[in-house]
Amino acid sequence: MTDARKLRSSGNWRTVYGGPLLIGVLSVVGLLSALLYEGPGRYFSWLALGAPIALTGWFYARRKRA
């Protein structure tokens, strides 16, 4: 792992876990917001918990076809 080239090609924790971590934190905030704040919390929860679904759709739309 000391080889710089190998490091670059093997990725780091941020490129591997960064995306899922962000979606995860957003999901948890969304789960709690509807429970703690009626009205605005509810709207936010729809956006935050809808994000994993929207992101999946986006990845599907721009997938590489062989």
Binding site: T15, I23, S27, R65
Partner: peptide
């Protein structure tokens, strides 16, 4: 990269879906 979906073979396609869907639904 995050969200890679390949359709090289059935196995690789399902492998990518397993990883992507597992990663985005994990907290929920």
């Amino acid at each position: 990269s995050f969200g890679t979906l390949r359709d090289k073979s059935r196995r690789i396609a399902w492998f990518d879906w397993h990883n992507l869907l597992g990663a985005v639904t994990i907290a929920w």
